[in-house]
Design a protein around this nucleic acid. Structure first.
Lengths: 349, 349
DNA sequence: TTGTAAGCGTTATCAC
DNA sequence: GTGATAACGCTTACAA
């Protein structure tokens, strides 16, 4: 590790320095760098020794130019949940750890009418090998088309399959939400409220479907008054809570399409003196830090987000991973229902 | 914007294509790209027209190679607070938005004994122009020395000046904490507990100093039993809460060195039936999402983290920013105390 | 299995 | 002001 960092001229050593020191041609050094098979063990050893001695590190810009391809992958996101983005990032980085790849991060503004131009400019400038799209922008078909158009590989991460399996990593929101709601029903809840996600989000639609599915199975229905609008923000949870808990006959349980809104509903319950979970059960979605930081701790659905990051990177650039990397199969990863203290049987009248 | 994306041969147009179309040499095109002053307006216009027509985007790898420098800056972090990291990222990206720079993200493991080697390998491989270090790893002097050694510029972000102003962006934790605690004292609190940050963290030391400063001013002291250890994690808040609130004469207010621990203390108060803020005031630090998601909403200190990201990037690469960018001065940014519902006068006996 | 020559797309040098 | 020509550090032909 303590090899000298400077080459002959006081600068970074180049492939030529290595070749000279090892007594071979630069092409041979190149072969060693690129793990060519056609090399004598002896030659390889000599080159590796020289590399070690000089502390040579191949210049990625030069490689990128010669290869006509960059060793960058990009993460595009406009995700309101920081923890999700960061966990995903970690997953990606774990996946590319021993490869030559680096990760470029690009937050975008999904509301901007320049979204497509922004992304186009970014992709044209950086020319990453591929891009990973996190929800909600992963749901934007134009973005996927743009990547296709620019010859940039892409993988979309979502709550349900959005595309071909080779372009998509998803969780099974619908199923797990149904499972969570079945749990409420099994506990005896019959009056169950729902706080929706934002209009037009696939994840919101999936979660609502799962919710309705479980209700339908049990022969329950969702009165319009129990179906509150939301947008994944805390304030929407407050509004939904106010609406649902002011009803003459309020629900005994509320499923919220994400944790933030669940936290809002929880706050309203507290300020109205409604005991959670004794008088009201609440379930969220995401298993964000908020879920465990509020009181009582929130039952929620845990997204396998780190694993999705790993999988997304592996799907995007299977051919660039460190040799010997085990690539997992399957584009749909299972979320899990996590039961905490915010859920209990309904109060008996 | 809708210029054709393909050059003559169905590939990306190069500087040669532009030169040919504009009827000038490639060097002239290069001058236009690099905003050289020595150009006729007419020549410039002709070249720009050709660029527009072809949809030419300079290849960053080729530029990087020729310049012997790439256009990347790196963000190194091992921050437990995802929101902080992401807000900082946004700030950095806002700062470099119209420049040619891109952001590389690198989470590291501060606990690993290979930390230095990891970072060295990363910097040698990617050779970013500079690196930004977020706390707590920004407090590691070896890391700063490594950057210096490798000729990579660096900026350290911290709770207090850690280095020369040209290598450091910091907030004024000590002062703001003192201000927050003064507020508690002004409300009438005399029995004020403290939950510390992790041992060895500069931010923890700064916050504790600020706390003690305010107490000293008012002639109050901090009994050992009121001084609880912590590590910035929720569970530490739980433990501290259990300890402080089980005392025969518990504090009437508790300052926690971050929001997560404050959330823990809040949970303990709830489960013990202690009313916040009527019977117990709580203050946190960070203004993380948790602060507003818990109930009652937490008084806390807001870090100007986005602005610190902007400033860090500007300090790191003032010479690479888009021309005309206004660069703010000053390496110390002010945090602000945000008062919410978790603070009130102590209960009168 | 290894080496030679040419080229990747840009900028630097130094003439004109 | 502008343009030939040689870098930049590496890889891909293709040859040996």
């Amino acid at each position: 590790m303590a090899a000298q960092t400077k080459g002959p001229g006081g600068k970074q050593p180049t492939i030529n320095d290595v070749a000279a020191l090892a007594g071979v041609s630069k092409k041979t050094v190149s072969r060693v760098i690129n793990r060519s098979e056609f090399l004598t063990d002896k030659t390889r050893a000599a080159v590796e020794k020289a590399i070690e001695q000089l502390g040579f590190v191949p210049n990625p810009q030069a490689r990128a130019l010669a290869f006509r391809r960059n060793f960058l992958i990009a993460l595009l996101h406009d995700n309101p949940n920081a923890q999700t983005v960061l966990n995903f990032q970690r997953g990606v980085l774990d996946a590319i750890k021993d490869s030559d790849l680096a990760l470029l991060v690009r937050p975008v503004d999904r509301g901007s009418d320049k979204l497509l131009d922004d992304v186009r400019t970014f992709l044209e400038k950086q020319r990453p090998i591929g891009a990973m799209l996190l929800p909600p922008i992963s749901e934007n078909d134009d973005l996927a088309a743009l990547c296709e158009d620019l010859g940039v590989r892409y993988v979309r991460v979502g709550s349900a399959p959005l595309d071909d399996a080779k372009h998509c990593i998803s969780s099974n929101d619908r199923e797990v939400v149904a499972e969570a709601v079945r749990r409420l029903i099994a506990l005896g809840h019959r009056r169950i409220g729902f706080v929706r996600g934002p209009v037009g989000f696939r994840s919101a639609a999936e979660r609502e479907e799962g919710f309705r599915e479980a209700l339908a199975e049990a022969g329950l229905d969702l009165p319009p008054a129990f179906n509150a609008p939301g947008n994944y923000r805390y304030t929407a949870g407050i509004e939904a809570g106010e609406a649902l808990l002011s009803l003459a006959a309020p629900p005994t349980a509320i499923f919220c399409s994400n944790d933030e809104m669940a936290a809002g509903v929880m706050s309203v319950a507290h300020s109205k003196g409604i005991k959670v979970p004794e008088q009201l059960s609440i379930i969220g979605f995401d298993d964000s830090p908020t879920a465990t930081h509020i009181w009582p701790a929130l039952s929620t659905v845990r997204w396998p987000i780190h694993e999705m990051g790993v999988r997304a990177a592996q799907t995007l650039v299977p051919d660039f991973l460190a040799p010997g990397t085990k690539v997992a199969e399957g584009a749909v990863l299972a979320s899990t229902f996590v039961e905490r203290q915010s859920v209990a049987p309904p109060a008996t009248k």
